[in-house]
Design a protein around this nucleic acid. Sequence first.
DNA 1: GTAGGTGCAAATTATTTGCACATGT
DNA 2: ACATGTGCAAATAATTTGCACCTAC
Lengths: 141, 141
Amino acid sequence: MVERAVVQGENKLLEKNYRLTPQRKAVLQALTQAGKGAHCTVEEIYLIARENCSQLGLATVYRTLELLTRLSIVQCLVLEDGRARYEIKRNPEHHHLICLECGRIQEIEDDQLLPVYPQNVSFHILSASIHFFGLCRSCAN
Amino acid sequence: MVERAVVQGENKLLEKNYRLTPQRKAVLQALTQAGKGAHCTVEEIYLIARENCSQLGLATVYRTLELLTRLSIVQCLVLEDGRARYEIKRNPEHHHLICLECGRIQEIEDDQLLPVYPQNVSFHILSASIHFFGLCRSCAN
DNA sequence: GTAGGTGCAAATTATTTGCACATGT
DNA sequence: ACATGTGCAAATAATTTGCACCTAC
Protein backbone atom coordinates (compact mmCIF):
# COMPACT_ATOMS: atom_id res chain seq x y z
CA MET A 1 0.00 0.00 0.00
CA VAL A 2 1.28 3.40 -0.99
CA GLU A 3 1.25 5.95 1.80
CA ARG A 4 -0.60 9.18 1.41
CA ALA A 5 2.55 11.17 2.13
CA VAL A 6 4.26 9.50 -0.81
CA VAL A 7 1.47 10.50 -3.19
CA GLN A 8 1.50 14.05 -1.85
CA GLY A 9 5.25 14.25 -2.33
CA GLU A 10 5.01 12.85 -5.84
CA ASN A 11 2.37 15.41 -6.73
CA LYS A 12 4.48 18.27 -5.44
CA LEU A 13 7.35 17.12 -7.62
CA LEU A 14 5.13 16.92 -10.71
CA GLU A 15 3.57 20.31 -10.00
CA LYS A 16 6.99 21.90 -10.09
CA ASN A 17 7.92 20.00 -13.25
CA TYR A 18 10.41 17.68 -11.66
CA ARG A 19 10.53 14.19 -13.06
CA LEU A 20 9.07 11.30 -11.17
CA THR A 21 11.87 8.78 -11.29
CA PRO A 22 11.94 5.38 -9.56
CA GLN A 23 14.79 6.76 -7.42
CA ARG A 24 12.71 9.67 -6.14
CA LYS A 25 9.74 7.39 -5.52
CA ALA A 26 11.95 5.01 -3.59
CA VAL A 27 13.35 7.76 -1.35
CA LEU A 28 9.88 9.10 -0.58
CA GLN A 29 8.68 5.57 0.07
CA ALA A 30 11.63 4.91 2.40
CA LEU A 31 10.95 8.06 4.38
CA THR A 32 7.33 7.15 4.99
CA GLN A 33 8.02 3.46 5.45
CA ALA A 34 10.44 4.31 8.26
CA GLY A 35 7.42 5.86 9.94
CA LYS A 36 6.73 8.78 12.20
CA GLY A 37 9.56 9.79 14.44
CA ALA A 38 12.12 7.85 12.46
CA HIS A 39 14.65 10.62 11.81
CA CYS A 40 16.76 8.55 9.49
CA THR A 41 20.28 9.39 8.46
CA VAL A 42 21.06 9.54 4.76
CA GLU A 43 22.75 6.16 4.92
CA GLU A 44 19.67 4.60 6.53
CA ILE A 45 17.36 6.09 3.92
CA TYR A 46 19.70 4.79 1.25
CA LEU A 47 19.57 1.26 2.61
CA ILE A 48 15.79 1.20 2.89
CA ALA A 49 15.24 2.82 -0.49
CA ARG A 50 17.53 0.35 -2.20
CA GLU A 51 15.13 -2.43 -1.38
CA ASN A 52 12.70 -0.92 -3.89
CA CYS A 53 15.25 0.41 -6.32
CA SER A 54 18.30 -1.78 -6.38
CA GLN A 55 20.56 0.26 -8.66
CA LEU A 56 20.10 3.40 -6.51
CA GLY A 57 23.28 5.35 -5.75
CA LEU A 58 24.07 7.18 -2.52
CA ALA A 59 24.80 10.44 -4.34
CA THR A 60 21.29 10.34 -5.78
CA VAL A 61 19.86 10.02 -2.30
CA TYR A 62 21.77 13.15 -1.24
CA ARG A 63 20.57 15.00 -4.34
CA THR A 64 17.00 13.84 -3.86
CA LEU A 65 16.90 14.81 -0.19
CA GLU A 66 18.29 18.23 -1.06
CA LEU A 67 15.53 18.65 -3.64
CA LEU A 68 12.78 17.39 -1.33
CA THR A 69 14.01 19.76 1.38
CA ARG A 70 13.99 22.68 -1.03
CA LEU A 71 10.39 21.83 -1.95
CA SER A 72 9.44 21.56 1.75
CA ILE A 73 8.42 17.94 1.32
CA VAL A 74 10.91 16.77 3.89
CA GLN A 75 12.81 18.54 6.61
CA CYS A 76 16.35 18.19 7.76
CA LEU A 77 17.29 17.79 11.40
CA VAL A 78 20.89 18.22 12.47
CA LEU A 79 21.63 16.93 15.94
CA GLU A 80 24.75 17.35 18.03
CA ASP A 81 26.54 14.53 16.22
CA GLY A 82 26.55 16.71 13.11
CA ARG A 83 24.89 14.14 10.86
CA ALA A 84 21.87 15.15 8.84
CA ARG A 85 18.63 13.34 9.53
CA TYR A 86 15.49 13.63 7.46
CA GLU A 87 11.79 13.24 8.02
CA ILE A 88 8.63 13.91 6.07
CA LYS A 89 7.33 17.37 6.86
CA ARG A 90 4.02 17.29 8.66
CA ASN A 91 1.34 19.62 9.80
CA PRO A 92 1.18 20.74 12.53
CA GLU A 93 4.88 21.25 12.96
CA HIS A 94 6.64 19.30 15.67
CA HIS A 95 9.71 19.52 17.84
CA HIS A 96 12.08 17.01 19.40
CA LEU A 97 12.76 15.50 22.79
CA ILE A 98 16.21 13.96 22.74
CA CYS A 99 17.20 11.56 25.48
CA LEU A 100 20.74 12.23 26.70
CA GLU A 101 21.01 8.68 28.00
CA CYS A 102 19.84 6.47 25.14
CA GLY A 103 19.71 8.99 22.30
CA ARG A 104 16.15 8.13 21.40
CA ILE A 105 14.16 10.95 19.87
CA GLN A 106 10.53 11.55 20.74
CA GLU A 107 8.36 14.15 19.15
CA ILE A 108 6.10 16.80 20.47
CA GLU A 109 3.65 18.86 18.51
CA ASP A 110 3.84 22.58 18.39
CA ASP A 111 0.47 23.15 20.02
CA GLN A 112 1.39 20.98 22.99
CA LEU A 113 3.82 23.61 24.10
CA LEU A 114 1.91 26.83 23.48
CA PRO A 115 4.79 28.28 21.57
CA VAL A 116 5.47 31.72 22.81
CA TYR A 117 7.64 33.37 20.27
CA PRO A 118 9.81 36.23 21.42
CA GLN A 119 8.34 39.68 21.78
CA ASN A 120 10.08 42.98 21.25
CA VAL A 121 12.76 41.56 19.04
CA SER A 122 13.68 43.18 15.77
CA PHE A 123 13.63 39.90 13.94
CA HIS A 124 10.87 38.48 11.78
CA ILE A 125 10.41 34.90 12.92
CA LEU A 126 9.19 32.42 10.34
CA SER A 127 9.75 29.11 12.06
CA ALA A 128 11.34 27.49 15.05
CA SER A 129 13.23 24.34 15.76
CA ILE A 130 13.19 23.35 19.37
CA HIS A 131 15.29 20.57 20.82
CA PHE A 132 14.65 19.59 24.39
CA PHE A 133 17.32 17.53 26.06
CA GLY A 134 16.74 15.32 29.05
CA LEU A 135 15.78 11.81 30.02
CA CYS A 136 13.10 9.72 28.42
CA ARG A 137 10.69 7.81 30.62
CA SER A 138 12.62 4.56 30.70
CA CYS A 139 16.03 6.17 31.24
CA ALA A 140 14.66 8.29 34.07
CA ASN A 141 13.59 4.99 35.76
CA MET B 1 43.55 42.70 29.21
CA VAL B 2 42.49 39.20 30.11
CA GLU B 3 38.77 38.63 30.05
CA ARG B 4 36.97 37.39 33.09
CA ALA B 5 35.59 34.42 31.16
CA VAL B 6 39.13 33.33 30.37
CA VAL B 7 40.12 33.36 34.03
CA GLN B 8 36.98 31.45 34.98
CA GLY B 9 37.70 28.86 32.30
CA GLU B 10 41.29 28.52 33.42
CA ASN B 11 40.21 28.01 37.00
CA LYS B 12 37.75 25.31 36.03
CA LEU B 13 40.52 23.47 34.22
CA LEU B 14 42.83 23.68 37.23
CA GLU B 15 40.11 22.60 39.63
CA LYS B 16 39.67 19.39 37.65
CA ASN B 17 43.41 18.87 37.47
CA TYR B 18 43.79 19.59 33.82
CA ARG B 19 46.99 21.33 32.79
CA LEU B 20 46.97 24.95 31.86
CA THR B 21 48.88 24.92 28.61
CA PRO B 22 49.46 27.90 26.30
CA GLN B 23 47.28 26.11 23.74
CA ARG B 24 44.31 25.91 26.10
CA LYS B 25 44.78 29.50 27.16
CA ALA B 26 44.89 30.60 23.56
CA VAL B 27 41.67 28.77 22.68
CA LEU B 28 39.84 30.29 25.66
CA GLN B 29 41.25 33.68 24.78
CA ALA B 30 40.12 33.30 21.15
CA LEU B 31 36.60 32.37 22.21
CA THR B 32 36.20 35.43 24.40
CA GLN B 33 38.07 37.72 22.04
CA ALA B 34 35.63 36.81 19.27
CA GLY B 35 33.01 38.28 21.57
CA LYS B 36 29.41 37.60 22.43
CA GLY B 37 27.37 36.14 19.66
CA ALA B 38 30.40 35.11 17.66
CA HIS B 39 29.59 31.41 17.16
CA CYS B 40 32.93 30.60 15.62
CA THR B 41 33.67 27.49 13.67
CA VAL B 42 36.65 25.39 14.74
CA GLU B 43 38.69 26.74 11.86
CA GLU B 44 37.95 30.33 12.90
CA ILE B 45 38.90 29.65 16.50
CA TYR B 46 42.08 28.02 15.27
CA LEU B 47 43.04 31.07 13.21
CA ILE B 48 42.40 33.51 16.05
CA ALA B 49 44.10 31.35 18.66
CA ARG B 50 47.18 30.93 16.52
CA GLU B 51 47.88 34.63 16.83
CA ASN B 52 48.72 34.05 20.48
CA CYS B 53 50.18 30.59 20.13
CA SER B 54 51.87 30.21 16.80
CA GLN B 55 52.76 26.55 16.91
CA LEU B 56 49.16 25.56 17.70
CA GLY B 57 47.77 22.62 15.73
CA LEU B 58 44.21 22.21 14.50
CA ALA B 59 43.84 18.80 16.14
CA THR B 60 44.63 20.39 19.49
CA VAL B 61 41.86 22.91 18.95
CA TYR B 62 39.43 20.05 18.37
CA ARG B 63 40.67 18.24 21.47
CA THR B 64 40.54 21.40 23.56
CA LEU B 65 37.02 22.28 22.46
CA GLU B 66 35.90 18.76 23.24
CA LEU B 67 37.37 19.10 26.73
CA LEU B 68 35.92 22.56 27.33
CA THR B 69 32.53 21.30 26.23
CA ARG B 70 32.75 18.34 28.56
CA LEU B 71 33.54 20.72 31.43
CA SER B 72 30.62 22.99 30.44
CA ILE B 73 32.95 25.90 29.85
CA VAL B 74 31.87 26.24 26.25
CA GLN B 75 28.88 24.98 24.34
CA CYS B 76 28.59 23.57 20.90
CA LEU B 77 26.03 24.76 18.39
CA VAL B 78 25.34 22.73 15.27
CA LEU B 79 23.46 24.60 12.59
CA GLU B 80 21.90 23.31 9.39
CA ASP B 81 25.23 23.39 7.58
CA GLY B 82 26.41 20.61 9.89
CA ARG B 83 29.54 22.43 11.05
CA ALA B 84 30.19 22.73 14.76
CA ARG B 85 30.31 26.22 16.22
CA TYR B 86 31.41 27.06 19.72
CA GLU B 87 30.72 29.81 22.21
CA ILE B 88 31.52 30.46 25.84
CA LYS B 89 28.71 29.21 28.04
CA ARG B 90 26.88 32.00 29.80
CA ASN B 91 24.23 32.47 32.39
CA PRO B 92 21.36 32.95 31.81
CA GLU B 93 21.15 30.54 28.89
CA HIS B 94 20.36 31.95 25.50
CA HIS B 95 18.89 30.84 22.20
CA HIS B 96 19.46 31.75 18.58
CA LEU B 97 17.78 33.79 15.89
CA ILE B 98 19.17 32.73 12.54
CA CYS B 99 18.59 34.91 9.50
CA LEU B 100 17.65 32.83 6.47
CA GLU B 101 18.81 35.59 4.15
CA CYS B 102 22.25 36.59 5.41
CA GLY B 103 22.97 33.78 7.86
CA ARG B 104 23.73 36.15 10.70
CA ILE B 105 22.99 34.81 14.14
CA GLN B 106 21.49 36.95 16.87
CA GLU B 107 20.91 35.83 20.39
CA ILE B 108 17.97 35.95 22.70
CA GLU B 109 17.97 35.21 26.37
CA ASP B 110 15.83 32.54 27.85
CA ASP B 111 13.75 34.89 29.96
CA GLN B 112 12.88 37.06 26.97
CA LEU B 113 10.77 34.29 25.52
CA LEU B 114 8.80 33.05 28.52
CA PRO B 115 10.04 29.59 27.84
CA VAL B 116 7.10 27.30 27.73
CA TYR B 117 8.31 23.84 28.35
CA PRO B 118 5.96 21.02 27.45
CA GLN B 119 3.36 19.87 29.92
CA ASN B 120 2.05 16.36 30.35
CA VAL B 121 4.96 14.72 28.65
CA SER B 122 6.66 11.67 30.09
CA PHE B 123 10.09 13.12 29.54
CA HIS B 124 12.34 14.79 32.07
CA ILE B 125 13.56 17.97 30.41
CA LEU B 126 16.96 19.27 31.46
CA SER B 127 17.68 21.90 28.85
CA ALA B 128 16.48 23.29 25.57
CA SER B 129 18.04 24.58 22.42
CA ILE B 130 15.78 26.82 20.41
CA HIS B 131 16.59 28.02 16.92
CA PHE B 132 14.29 30.59 15.41
CA PHE B 133 14.55 31.06 11.68
CA GLY B 134 13.46 34.16 9.86
CA LEU B 135 14.71 37.52 8.69
CA CYS B 136 16.89 39.90 10.62
CA ARG B 137 16.03 43.57 10.70
CA SER B 138 18.18 44.61 7.76
CA CYS B 139 17.18 41.67 5.54
CA ALA B 140 13.49 42.28 6.26
CA ASN B 141 14.00 45.85 4.91
C1' DG C 1 14.45 14.03 -29.11
C1' DT C 2 16.19 16.32 -25.29
C1' DA C 3 16.57 18.48 -20.87
C1' DG C 4 16.87 16.71 -16.68
C1' DG C 5 18.36 12.82 -13.77
C1' DT C 6 21.54 9.12 -12.39
C1' DG C 7 25.62 6.05 -11.17
C1' DC C 8 30.10 5.84 -10.27
C1' DA C 9 34.42 7.22 -8.81
C1' DA C 10 37.14 10.94 -7.48
C1' DA C 11 37.35 15.31 -4.84
C1' DT C 12 36.35 18.03 -0.90
C1' DT C 13 35.47 19.07 3.89
C1' DA C 14 35.10 18.19 8.73
C1' DT C 15 36.74 15.59 12.25
C1' DT C 16 39.47 11.85 14.64
C1' DT C 17 43.37 9.13 15.74
C1' DG C 18 48.24 7.01 16.29
C1' DC C 19 52.46 7.97 17.71
C1' DA C 20 56.85 10.07 18.82
C1' DC C 21 58.10 14.04 21.17
C1' DA C 22 57.40 17.96 24.49
C1' DT C 23 56.01 20.13 28.89
C1' DG C 24 53.16 21.57 33.12
C1' DT C 25 52.99 20.19 37.64
C1' DA D 1 60.14 12.34 36.68
C1' DC D 2 56.22 11.27 34.43
C1' DA D 3 51.53 11.55 33.27
C1' DT D 4 49.28 14.50 30.38
C1' DG D 5 49.26 17.19 26.25
C1' DT D 6 50.71 18.37 21.61
C1' DG D 7 52.00 18.52 16.51
C1' DC D 8 51.94 16.29 12.54
C1' DA D 9 50.43 13.35 9.13
C1' DA D 10 47.52 9.74 8.02
C1' DA D 11 42.81 7.73 8.63
C1' DT D 12 37.89 8.13 8.73
C1' DA D 13 33.35 9.92 7.76
C1' DA D 14 30.03 12.76 5.55
C1' DT D 15 28.96 15.10 1.66
C1' DT D 16 29.69 17.09 -3.07
C1' DT D 17 30.96 17.12 -7.80
C1' DG D 18 32.39 15.94 -12.79
C1' DC D 19 31.15 13.45 -16.38
C1' DA D 20 29.47 9.94 -19.53
C1' DC D 21 25.35 7.62 -19.94
C1' DC D 22 20.29 7.03 -19.32
C1' DT D 23 15.23 7.97 -19.28
C1' DA D 24 10.76 10.43 -18.15
C1' DC D 25 8.32 13.42 -20.47
